[in-house]
Amino acid sequence: MTDYNPLLPIAPAQGNRRSPLYRRHVDLQAKFEQVGDAVLVSHYVKPGIEVLLAANLGLVDLSTMPRTGFKGAGAPAWAASQRVKLPKLPNTAVTQKDGSVVAKLSHQELLIVSNIMGSATSIDRLNREHLNREHSNKEHLNREHLNREHSNKEHLSKQTLAPQTYSLPRADSHSWLAVTGNAAAEMFSKICGVDLRVHKFAHNQVAQTSVAKINGVILRHDLATTPCFYILSDITSTEFLWDSLLDAMEEYRGAAVGVAAMRSLAANK
């Protein structure tokens, strides 16, 4: 799985990936942990207290965790050929065997986020396979181009124009936050026009909408029995969104929590 060890103290800039919120975390005296090549907040206060906070209303920064995406008319069929379980409808998601989540944002667009242990195995494999496919497609196109020059054809063959799959590497373009707890949906009603109450917005349902005036993808992915909403939005606005969410959470006694609390809640069956 991963080589993370919560007992090792670590600095936020130590890993290859650093969250755009790391200064906020340092100010909140966060304890960091390393997962693969990324550093993320394990906890701010005592982990036991954070589990209670997260069960009520918590905000977690998962921005350094693995995620990716694929788009294009050929994307769903290609992903299926890679043994990815696909959601049937757009704006829904399916949990994979390894705990990663695949969301369908439209008929031709997939978003894939890792499990909360930060395991990058399946995401790395998909990115690698896609890259290999790109290389072989490019070689095929070059051959077609040469053939075309020789035979003076006007158009490329039908095979060349087969449905394409394009990579959408979300890790650098989108931040990833999680809002956890029973008060989450009510808090969202202040800053989001979509009804996210648990009886209206199901586990693994997706809404592409505006949160605190920031466009984002909201994916409900519960931690066992605790509601949890992932927000993926433009990475350049992360600090604004983080501050806005904490401000909206204040009246419900919400607080920033670390990923350790999420893992504890997910383990509570």
Binding site: P90, N91, S106, G193, V194, A207, Q208, T209, S210, N215
Partner: peptide, 17 residues
Amino acid sequence: MKLLTCPLNGQRNISEF
């Protein structure tokens, strides 16, 4: 707030369009 129905995402505030 005016509402508009997106064929993919359903009914949303006009400010999202």
